[in-house]
């Protein structure tokens, strides 16, 4: 039996909005520590790893481990029906075949209830191996989203070059090329506006902007984003 109540639906709305572009059908693995999602996109190029800790819900109850097979396009449509400030309760009974979602407006004058059919998703057991990255860049997430959007006008591929005191995003295509250089700015007043480049050794790697733009949709969830890069391993965002 799972019953979890989120004080404001906006958090789950943003999460689903960011993930739905990448993940078709996947399991929400629920246990007493929270709700986890580990899933790849259909072409197995990107992995989404998400953990919604039990502490973020109030109350949170999960009697035994349960895997909820969900079609994320359907869940995204249902989440569109929730107001940002509604409180949201998700429920799934023993051997449930539906996930129930309830949105309650702040003054409880409107209660919406949706059931979405659960499906059997045979999931590969996935995880991100512990990696000691050559370069780790921390920067404002909105700025990263802006860079990915801006450089998409020039190319489908962006080269990220991390050197001692700067990170450079370069895109070159048939029509021309563009580059954006971001420099560290320690000691800023707002933590989220900080830019730091931690370097074990310089790296210069190319990535698909299609996927980076999908990942950047999660920018509204956190003010700061960390990019971790090393040769021959996937970029971690």
């Amino acid at each position: 039996m799972l019953e979890a109540r989120l004080p404001s639906a906006v958090t789950l709305k943003k999460i689903i909005d960011a993930v739905k572009e990448l993940v078709q059908d996947a399991n929400f693995d629920c246990n007493d520590s929270g709700i986890a999602l580990q899933a790849m996109d259909s072409s197995h190029v990107a992995l989404v790893a998400l953990l919604m800790r039990a502490e973020g819900f109030d109350p949170y109850r999960c009697d035994r481990n349960i895997a909820l097979g969900i079609n994320f396009a359907t869940l995204a449509k249902v989440m569109k029906c929730a107001g940002n400030d509604d409180n949201l309760t998700i429920k799934a009974g023993e051997d449930a075949d539906v996930l129930s979602l309830m949105f309650e407006s702040t003054n409880s004058d409107r209660i919406s209830e949706f059931d979405i059919k659960l499906m059997d998703v045979d999931a590969d057991h996935l995880g991100i191996p512990e990696t000691d990255y050559s370069a780790t860049i921390k920067m404002p997430s909105a700025e990263f989203q802006r860079i990915c959007r801006d450089l998409s006008v020039m190319s489908e591929t962006v080269t990220i070059e991390a050197v001692k005191d700067a990170v450079k995003f370069i895109a070159s295509g048939d029509t021309g090329s563009g580059s954006i250089t971001v420099k560290p700015n320690q000691a800023v007043d707002k933590k989220d506006m900080e830019v730091t480049v931690t370097l074990q050794e310089p790296v210069k790697l190319a990535f698909s902007l299609k996927y980076l733009n999908h990942f950047a949709k999660a920018s509204t969830l956190a003010g700061s984003v960390t990019l971790s890069l090393s040769d021959d391993v996937p970029l971690m965002i």
């Binding site: 790849m40 072409s43 197995h44 190029v45 990107a46 996935l126 996937p234």
Partner: peptide
């Protein structure tokens, strides 16, 4: 650029 290689084996838990 071009087609991306599958990362399933990289992320698959042994």
């Amino acid at each position: 650029g071009g087609e991306q290689k599958s990362l399933l084996s990289f992320f698959a838990r042994k």
